[in-house]
């Protein structure tokens, strides 16, 4: 537990909830990042603009982090390019098949106590834990 950052993580989490609530209140939309990205890939005239603005806002926030909190972008997990590419493929395909990711199911869906999102969240945490177990404890932390 030496890396535990309870205060920063709780504050960041409150901000994520606030941002998702702001999107719901202002645009009536659920803040599911995988759905927003996919909606830009298969755009519809009236639906793409807010999605692009949300993503642009995320990049702007990322730019601010780069300046004021560069520590946010420390990537210390040892992975080969092949593992990263496979991870991206799985995340992209899986979030479309399951209709959501950590934000849509994990935050928004669980908050609504939607059984569908609760099941998805437990499933992706379990699958992630299984893969991390294999990588960290059977492959010595590098794949």
């Amino acid at each position: 537990m030496e890396n535990f950052t309870p205060i920063a993580s709780l504050i960041g989490g409150l901000m994520i909830g606030l941002a998702a609530a702001g999107l719901l209140l202002s645009t009536g939309q659920v803040a599911g990042v995988s759905g927003i990205v996919a909606g830009v890939l298969r755009p519809v005239k009236t639906e793409v603009a807010w999605r692009l603005c949300f993503l642009a806002g995320m990049l702007a926030g990322g730019g601010a982090l780069r300046i004021y909190l560069p520590h946010a972008f420390t990537f210390t997990v040892a992975r080969s390019a092949g593992a990263i590419a496979l991870a991206g493929l799985l995340v992209g395909f899986g979030t479309r098949l399951g209709n959501g990711c950590t934000s849509g199911h994990g935050v928004c869906g669980v908050s609504r106590l939607a059984p569908r999102s609760l099941c998805a969240t437990l499933t992706f945490i379990a699958a992630g834990a299984a893969v991390v177990y294999i990588v960290n404890h059977l492959f010595g932390g590098y794949v």
């Binding site: 990042v33 995988s34 990205v37 995320m58 997990v77 992975r79 593992a83 990263i84 496979l86 991870a87 991206g88 493929l89 799985l90 995340v91 992209g92 395909f93 899986g94 979030t95 479309r96 098949l97 399951g98 209709n99 990711c101 950590t102 934000s103 199911h105 099941c119 998805a120 969240t121 499933t123 992706f124 945490i125 379990a126 699958a127 992630g128 834990a129 299984a130 893969v131 991390v132 990588v135 794949v143």
Partner: peptide, 17 residues
């Protein structure tokens, strides 16, 4: 879908956001 996503999430440490 959730299982496939979770596997990729554990493998890379990134989710879409």
């Amino acid at each position: 879908g959730a299982a496939i996503f979770g596997a990729g999430w554990g493998l890379g440490g990134f989710c879409p956001g």
